[in-house]
Amino acid sequence: MKHRLSHLNFNDIEIPEVNIHSFEMGDYLLEVDYNDHKGYVFDDQDNIVKFRNVTQVKEALNECRVKHAYLVHQSAYDEMCGGAEGNSSELKIELNFKH
């Protein structure tokens, strides 16, 4: 499921949960759970929206109401230390997303 950024940022919209996924090279991707559908956020040209930091995500969603926001980081630590492949750990930290 894809969500359009241009369709989310309105005063009457309440988003139950957002996950900000941290990737290498400092990119952050926004996953939104809205209308019982979880999916990443795309622009109007069908490109996934990349953010440089959490503040940019907050600014992009400054009109809507976000109930819960999390910063999610996938760690390949287990794999790098000889652990099983595909058994990477996920770190999920709740953020204060109030404006």
Rank of each mutant, 00 (worst) to 15 (best):
V32K: 02
Y77Q: 14
C64G: 04
H3T: 04
G82R: 01
K67I: 11
N35Q: 15
K58Q: 07
H68S: 15
H37Y: 15
K58W: 06
K98F: 06
D78Q: 12
E79Q: 10
N87M: 09
C64W: 02
S22E: 14
K67T: 14
I13S: 06
G39L: 05
G26H: 02
K98A: 11
N9P: 00
V41E: 02
P16T: 03
Y77I: 14
L71Y: 08
V18W: 07
N19V: 01
D46A: 07
D36F: 08
A84D: 09
E63D: 02
H37W: 14
I20K: 06
Y70H: 10
F42M: 01
H68Y: 09
T55V: 09
A60L: 09
M1F: 14
N62Y: 07
L8N: 06
C81G: 04
F97H: 01
R65E: 09
I20E: 02
E14V: 13
Y40S: 04
L91Q: 09
D36P: 05
N11W: 09
F51P: 13
M1E: 14
D27W: 09
A84C: 00
R4P: 00
H7Q: 12
A69C: 08
E24G: 11
T55A: 12
N19W: 12
H99V: 08
P16D: 03
T55G: 07
H37S: 15
H37I: 15
E24Q: 14
Y28C: 00
E17K: 11
F97L: 03
F42I: 00
V57I: 03
Q56A: 03
Y40F: 12
N87H: 07
D12M: 02
K98I: 12
S75V: 01
L29A: 15
E63S: 11
R52L: 12
G82N: 02
E90I: 10
H3M: 06
V72A: 10
N35C: 14
Y28F: 15
V54I: 13
I15L: 07
I48K: 12
H68P: 03
K92E: 07
G39Y: 06
I13M: 06
L8S: 08
E24Y: 10
L61Y: 04
E31Y: 06
G26V: 04
T55Q: 10
L71Q: 10
V57Y: 09
H68K: 14
